[in-house]
Every structure is written in structure tokens, then in C-alpha cells.
Design a protein around this nucleic acid. Structure first.
Length: 850
DNA sequence: AGTCAGCGCGCG
DNA sequence: AAAGCGCGCGCTGACT
């Protein structure tokens, strides 16, 4: 094959290895090439060989080689090393051997073979490159470090084996019925009316369902219906809709309306990420529902697994990835679109059969699925479609103010910037950095740019306090320009005006870029802002908020409409933009100190139970304990400083981090001794937490997973890692997860029940969104008197015992705020909530009429 | 022009 | 020896 060169010194790695330049080994005319990132240790080589044989690969057909040829434990290969080494060795090996199949391990192998980067994205995909069929997956080192990856890793290798053997897929693909004329459509509708189950999927074109140029390209289903003898029959069908080659291209909306009623009548409606499909279909007047979502079920059963339809198809059904490039479907030929559109719901149906059985085998999870996940999904469809109202006048003025503030700060800062064309004033100006290949002067840029680093640390000569990650080539990381650095510099140079200006500027810059302008870009013609809430976006069961994955792809332009409504700055300048339209009020209902309460509930700490039952402010209590003062003398700042103590130490924070948090978030300084003492004080106050932490550690070490009191499971396979740091991380997650999980499930359940009640009682109130432990509503002013007490009592008395067999023996508090706008909503006392008619005028601005 | 990692910061 | 947890996303700069 190729010669090794023991004197090779083309890259740095040769200096860090015992054996310079180990080339590949194995069969010389092999048709399978296995490429690792560097020459494998015998452990990893054994691991790979064992798995490959297990998957059915004949090892004598293989040639094993690597991207870089020097193995080093001290030094990770950098980009340059990889490039140099590949060009000189691996490229030759591939060229000479001409393998039919290539298996790559790790991101380095992926990059060397396919020029792509991002192994977590590209893993497990079969593609063509270098004249071979290629599959890449994570490296064995990564699997050992994070044992949670093992299952998916084995599935990748099995897929590779089945690709090699040519026996792809365990499912027979049935004939598809293409519904392309009126007669077939009428027949389909008749079958639909009888059907008991439908798995459906749509292909779409256009930015989102409200885009005037948007359309549903095709609708496909896999359907179960009884035949004349009452036996279940399966049919796979697809209707071409808004596509140039479709017979229905001009009447596709009518076609959907024609089948709507039959569709809506089907009892079991299955989809993968069905919220997306349902939203599109509802815009076209088909009230599609999701009674079983395979993505949500897969995620609930194992939150760590890949939950896309294709990976699930590969892992659960053993089918090879299918599909087409979904960009601009209307410019592609129709036929393959229909074919692939059919496969999605067909495979979804088979995944459904498996996952449903898995849930039946785990009744507690099934309960969470049926009582929490599926109803929440239904509510979220409506919440996302309704959107949150933003005040158009306030928004317009906020945009003006934000830009004015930022530009004014820029102008002030510019007085400290030298003129680059006037080197006479100071020779240092000659070091003004360049940018780009043509040695162009860098523009002034007060964001975290290279120019900014020069200006701060060379021109203004501030000391470098903190640096970022060390680079690949061992050069030191970039000097930090984070706010924490600025604050630290401020303590050293309190009189320097630049620091204050910069901290202020970064706030306004963020408002301009991330908030106000974005809000205006995405607001619809009713001044509503829409988000996408994901029920499978977090490992704990919390929702995440933002946009569809597809919308994230284009980086700058066409950024998609989805906005994260869980990170709206608390500053009333921003939060005050959101509200309720005239005639309506905005309500925020949040669970007070919920995570702390639940930690006490779960740990059974006696003192914690007592404090909570007595309604004591735990932060105030901690402040008193830390300062040694009686509660009445504790200042506001001291109480503020106690907050990070409670929340940090609760989840395993160490005192060093406490000092940082206290300084950064609350501007309170602590010495090492005070910090250590605060940690002691915390566990002294809540001794039960120590035992609870230990119990969680014991459970996770034994079972590799923990469960929340409502039944949600967090799998923590990393607990079996050989890396101590990884293990400890998993231990802290085992402590945090059940608490965070239960809190967010309570919030979710509260939302579901309230939304049901509003509908049942005909109250004009809607959920606008969820923020982890809070629910935001809008409510017609005339219905506030009924709605406010309903919200409070529902949230404080959730039927957890009835629904999840979990009896809570501590008080739960829902704090209610009302106002015309979120940022200005005022908190109500219990008396005000339950007798709102007497306080109406205090909280409702009647000059705002609809 | 698009992609990606790293940083930094918004929220609970 | 070293240690909160959970998210999304805009910007920069390097690269293709």
C-alpha cells in the first residue's frame, strides 16, 4: 500500500508520539476501509473489531487505517495536522485501494473523507464519496467517554454492515396509491370515513404556513380501515397538491376541504412531529389532530436518542435512510417527492407500533404521555398559532430608542478611538489590526471582535484578565471581552469612562440585534409574535422555545418567524412591549420558588418542610443565617445575595462558583472564607439535602437513570463513564433532573387544565406561552373576575394524586400578576385575586378600549 | 454564499 | 482534584 516514513516531521504530532507514522494494516486488496482519527490503541481496535464482527462484517475484508498517522495522548490533532497528514498519506491509501465501502470514526474521519464537519449531524448517514459508499459515526473513544452513545453507535455499525451485505431494511415497501384524479379521490374519502387509524405526513413549500406563497406540496397517509368482511386492511396513499406537475395544482385547497371531514373523524391520528403538520393542515381548514406522536413518544422513552424519523427508522426498523433534498420542492420532479412522502407515514406507522408497545410496558411513562405530552401538544398548536400580542406603538418607539442609545454610546466611545490615518499621534496606531486576506484595515467594531481586542488591550492597555480556549496550534486563547471582564476591570479602573460605556452598549446592542428588531420583523399583521414550543427539546421535559429546525438553517437572511419567548429580558423596556390588546389584560401566573419547594418535598428535609409550611421566605432565612442578623435587620441586598446560595448549592455548586455568581449576578463580593461558610450554612440549614444528594447518586450509579415523582425518566448512561468528571456531571444531573422535571410538568399540567376550563366555561382567556415555571395568559377584562381565582386555585391544587399517584404534602403557591403589559403587570394579593371585582380599577386600564 | 465552532448572554 | 441544572441564538472569524 503506502510506505511509512519513520522520520516524517510534516506536522507537530510527530514530536508527541512514540511511533512516528503508523500506516494502515489489513488485507491489501480489501473492499472495506475502516478509518479512525489516529492509529487505534489495542483497546479501541479490539472494540471496533468486536462490534464489526458482531454486526456481521468479515474482518478479513477490511483494511484499517487512520486520518493522522501519529498517535499521541498529549496532543489532539489540529486542523493543520489533519490537512497535512491526509494529503500525504490517507489520500494515497484511498486512491490506491479504491475501497467499495468506507467506515469513518470521529469528526476527523468524516472531514477527511467527505469534507463535511459535524459528526453528530452526519453520523449514520450512508453517502457516496471518493468512489465509495461511506458511513461515518462517532469514535470509539467518544463512546467510552460517553457510554450513552453506545446504542446509537452500534446501530450505525449495523447499518454499515447491512449496507455492505446489500440486505438493507427489514420492511417490505407496499404499493402506493397515487390519488391523482377525482374518482380516486372520492374512493379515498370513502375509505377515510371508515378508517380507524391514520398516520400522515405533508411535504411543504414556503417559509411557514402563513407565507402567502406557501403551499402543501403533497399529503400522504398510511391508513387502517375495515374491508367488507371486517378485516383490517392497510393502504398507503398520497395526494399530489401544490406542485406544478400535480393535477390538483390549482384546486389543492379544495381537495383538502373535500377530505377534511373524513380526515377529522379518524380516531387515531399519528404523525412524527405532528404539531408541524397539524398547523399547516389547519390553515388549510383540515382540523388534523395528533393522538400519537412518534417523535414525542421516542423522546419520552429515551430523551438521549436521536429522534428524527430517519434515525428512528434506522434504529427501530433497520431501514436505510430515505428521502430527498427538501429545498424548494416545487422545482423538483413530482414523482420522487410522492414516493418519499409515502414512506414517511408508512415508517411512522411501524415506529408507532413499536413505541406504543414500549409505552404499554412502562405504564408510568404511558400516563405522562397520555395525560401530559399529547394534551400539551394539542394546546401548543393553538398557542403557537395565536401568538403573543406585542404593542405596535411601544415597539416602534423601543426600536428608535434602542438604536439611538446604541449609536450615542458608539459616538462617545469613538472619542477614544485613534485616527488610523494619523500615525503621528502615537506609533501604537500602526498596530491597528487587519482583516481578511488582502490585509485590509479592520473596521471599528465594538462587538467582541478582533479589532475590539486590539483597542482594549493594546491601544487602551487594559490588562488581560481572562482568556478563551487555547487554540489548536497551542497559541493562547483570545482575550475575553465578556461583561464579567468589564465589571472586574471597573473595580480596578473605576474612573475609566470606557468600561461603563461598553457595559451599557452591549445591553443596547443585544436589544437591537436580538430583541426589538427581530420582534418587528416577525410580528404578523395582527401584531402577534409566534414561537415554536418543542416538547422534545430538553432532557428534563421542559419546553424549549424558538423556531423549527429547518428555519435555523439559513443563517442571516430569511431567519424564519419563530422567536424564543422564554428569554425575553425582564427589563420593562422589553417585557413591557408584550401585553394584551385593548379591552384585554395580560396575566402572568408563576409558581413561587417551585424548584426549592419540590426539592424539599422530594428530600423530606425536616427544616425545609417546616419553613415552607409556615410560609417563610427561604431566601430571607438564608440571608439571616449567613449574616448572623435577625430577619428583621436583613437588607434587600443581603436577601438578594442569599438567592444564589439556595439555588446553586441545591444542585451541587461549589463555593468558588458561588463567589463568581454572587459577584456577577448581584454585585455582592465574598471572600473565600465567607463563601465556604455559606456552603456549610446551607447544608447546616437543610441537612436532609445531603442525604437526598447521596440517595440520587446511589440510584443513578445503580440504575443509570432517575425518575421524577410524576414518572418522567432521565437516563444518565454517562454515569458509567471512565472519566471522573463525566461521572460527577451525571451525578449532579441526577440531583437536578427530577426537580426541574416535576416543576415543569406541573406548569404544563396547569396550562392544560386551565385551557380546558376556559373552553368549558366559555371564558375569554387564552394561554400565550409558558416560561418553565410560569404561564402567561391574555384575558378579556370582563372575564378577569372569574379567570383570576380559577388560575390560582387550579395551579395551587393540581390533581397530581389522581393523575399520577403523587401526593404533595407541601403548599404550592401561584403568584398572579395582572396588567395591560407584561413588564408592568402588578402582583395581586390573595384577597385581590379572589375578590377582584373590588380591585378591578386598580389593575385594569379602562382608557384602553377595543 | 453557506457552514461551523466558540463565545457571550438572554431566560427559568 | 474539582464540582449548579436546563435551554436558544446573534455575532465573529475561519473555512469552503
Amino acid at each position: 500500500m503506502i510506505e511509512r516514513n519513520p522520520r516524517c516531521n510534516l506536522c507537530r504530532l510527530s514530536q508527541y508520539t512514540d511511533t512516528v507514522c503508523e500506516v494502515g494494516f489489513g488485507r491489501k486488496n480489501a473492499d472495506i476501509m475502516v478509518i479512525s482519527r489516529m492509529p487505534n490503541s489495542s483497546t479501541y481496535q479490539d472494540m471496533i473489531e468486536a462490534e464489526l464482527s458482531q454486526a456481521g462484517i468479515d474482518l478479513t475484508r477490511c483494511y484499517f487505517t487512520s486520518v493522522v498517522k501519529c498517535r499521541s495522548f498529549e496532543k489532539d490533532p489540529g486542523k493543520k495536522d489533519i490537512k497535512t497528514c491526509t494529503e500525504n498519506y490517507l489520500d494515497l491509501e484511498i486512491e490506491r485501494m479504491k475501497p467499495k465501502f468506507i467506515l469513518g470514526f470521529g469528526n476527523e474521519a468524516l472531514a477527511a473523507i467527505t469534507k463535511n464537519s459535524g459528526i453528530m449531524k452526519y453520523r449514520g448517514r450512508v453517502s457516496e464519496a471518493r468512489g465509495a459508499t461511506v458511513l461515518c459515526t462517532v469514535s470509539p473513544a467518544s463512546v467510552v467517554r460517553n457510554p450513552g452513545q453506545k446504542g446509537a453507535w452500534q446501530a450505525d455499525l449495523q447499518l454499515f454492515a447491512s449496507t455492505v451485505s446489500g440486505h438493507a431494511g427489514g420492511l417490505e415497501i407496499p404499493k402506493m396509491a397515487i390519488i391523482d384524479d377525482k374518482v380516486k379521490l372520492a374512493k379515498l374519502r370513502t375509505l377515510m370515513a371508515k378508517a380507524t387509524l391514520l398516520s400522515y405526513d405533508i411535504e411543504t413549500a414556503g417559509q411557514d404556513e402563513w407565507d402567502p406563497t406557501a403551499g402543501i406540496v403533497s399529503l400522504a397517509g398510511t391508513m387502517i380501515y375495515p374491508d367488507a368482511d371486517g378485516n383490517d386492511k392497510l393502504i398507503v396513499w398520497v395526494i399530489p397538491l401544490d406542485h406544478p406537475q400535480s393535477p390538483f395544482r390549482k384546486v389543492w385547497r379544495d381537495v383538502l376541504r373535500y377530505i377534511a371531514k373524513a380526515f377529522e373523524g379518524i380516531k387515531v391520528q399519528i404523525a412524527h412531529n405532528g404539531k408541524y403538520d397539524a398547523k399547516w393542515l389547519r390553515v388549510s381548514k383540515v382540523q388534523a389532530r395528533v393522538t400519537f406522536d412518534t417523535m414525542l413518544a421516542a423522546h419520552l422513552l429515551d430523551e438521549n436518542r436521536l429522534k428524527g424519523l430517519k434515525p428512528l427508522g434506522r434504529m427501530l426498523l433497520g431501514v436505510a435512510p430515505w428521502g430527498i433534498d427538501t429545498k424548494d420542492l416545487r422545482s423538483q420532479p413530482l414523482r420522487p417527492i410522492l414516493k418519499y412522502n409515502c414512506l414517511d407515514p408508512y415508517y411512522t406507522y411501524h415506529i408507532y407500533l413499536k413505541l406504543r408497545q414500549d409505552l404499554i410496558d412502562q405504564p408510568r411513562l404511558m400516563r405522562v404521555f397520555k395525560l401530559m405530552v399529547i394534551p400539551a401538544n394539542e394546546k401548543l398548536i393553538e398557542i403557537e398559532q395565536r401568538g403573543a400580542w406585542i404593542d405596535p406603538e411601544k415597539l416602534a418607539s423601543a426600536i428608535n430608542v434602542s438604536f439611538q442609545m446604541r449609536d450615542e454610546l458608539d459616538r462617545e466611545l469613538m472619542t477614544y478611538v485613534p485616527d488610523p490615518d494619523d500615525p503621528t499621534q502615537d506609533v501604537k496606531v500602526l498596530t491597528w489590526p487587519t482583516q481578511g486576506k488582502k490585509a485590509k484595515w479592520a473596521e471599528v467594531n465594538f462587538n467582541a471582535s478582533n479589532w475590539m481586542r486590539w483597542w482594549m488591550f493594546e491601544w487602551l492597555e487594559f490588562p488581560i484578565i481572562e482568556r478563551g480556549k487555547v487554540k489548536d496550534d497551542d497559541s493562547p486563547g483570545d482575550p475575553s471581552l465578556a461583561e464579567a471582564t468589564m465589571v472586574e476591570l471597573q473595580t480596578r479602573f473605576p474612573d475609566h469612562p470606557v468600561l461603563k460605556l461598553l457595559v451599557e452598549r452591549s445591553k443596547w446592542q443585544k436589544y437591537c440585534s436580538t430583541y426589538v428588531t427581530r420582534y418587528q420583523e416577525v410580528a404578523d399583521d395582527q401584531n402577534r409574535i409566534h414561537t415554536v414550543f418543542k416538547l422534545a427539546g430538553t432532557v428534563t421535559g421542559r419546553l424549549s422555545s424558538g423556531k423549527e429546525d429547518e428555519e435555523k438553517i439559513s443563517a442571516t437572511r430569511d431567519r424564519g418567524r419563530g422567536v424564543n419567548l422564554q428569554q425575553v429580558p425582564r427589563d420593562p423596556f422589553i417585557r413591557g412591549l408584550f401585553g394584551a390588546p385593548p379591552g384585554w389584560s395580560f396575566i402572568e401566573a408563576d409558581f413561587g420558588q417551585i424548584e426549592f419547594r419540590l426539592a424539599v418535598f422530594i428530600s423530606r428535609d425536616k427544616n425545609g418542610l417546616r419553613l415552607i409550611r409556615e410560609g417563610v421566605d427561604v431566601h430571607l432565612e438564608m440571608a439571616a443565617k449567613m449574616t448572623g442578623k435577625p430577619i428583621s435587620l436583613v437588607t434587600k441586598d443581603e436577601r438578594k445575595a442569599a438567592k444564589p446560595v439556595n439555588f446553586g448549592y441545591l444542585y451541587g455548586m461549589w463555593w468558588k462558583k458561588f463567589i463568581e455568581t454572587a459577584k456577577m449576578k448581584y454585585g455582592v463580593l465574598f471572600t473565600d472564607e465567607q463563601a465556604k461558610a455559606s456552603r456549610v450554612a446551607f447544608f447546616d440549614m437543610y441537612p436532609g439535602f445531603v442525604h437526598w444528594h447521596n440517595r440520587q447518586r446511589r440510584i443513578v450509579h445503580e440504575y443509570g437513570r432517575v425518575q421524577s415523582p410524576l414518572g418522567r425518566i432521565r437516563h444518565l448512561p454517562d454515569i458509567f463513564s471512565a472519566d471522573k468528571m463525566v461521572v460527577q456531571e451525571a451525578e449532579r444531573q441526577a440531583i437536578n433532573s427530577p426537580v426541574q422535571s416535576m416543576a415543569s410538568d406541573m406548569n404544563l399540567l396547569g396550562m392544560i387544565l386551565l385551557d380546558d376550563e376556559f373552553k368549558r366555561l366559555g371564558l375569554r382567556a387564552h394561554t400565550l406561552g409558558l416560561v418553565h415555571d410560569a404561564i402567561n395568559f391574555e384575558c378579556h377584562n370582563d372575564d378577569l373576575v372569574q379567570v383570576l381565582p380559577l388560575i390560582k386555585s387550579t395551579m395551587e391544587h393540581l390533581p397530581l394524586k389522581k393523575k399520577f399517584g403523587c401526593e404533595i404534602d407541601i403548599p404550592i403557591a401561584a403568584d398572579i400578576k395582572v396588567g395591560s403589559h407584561w413588564g408592568y403587570a402588578k402582583e395581586l394579593t390573595d384577597e385581590q385575586v379572589f375578590n377582584f371585582q373590588h380591585y378591578y380599577h386598580e389593575f385594569v386600564d379602562e382608557s384602553r378600549v377595543s
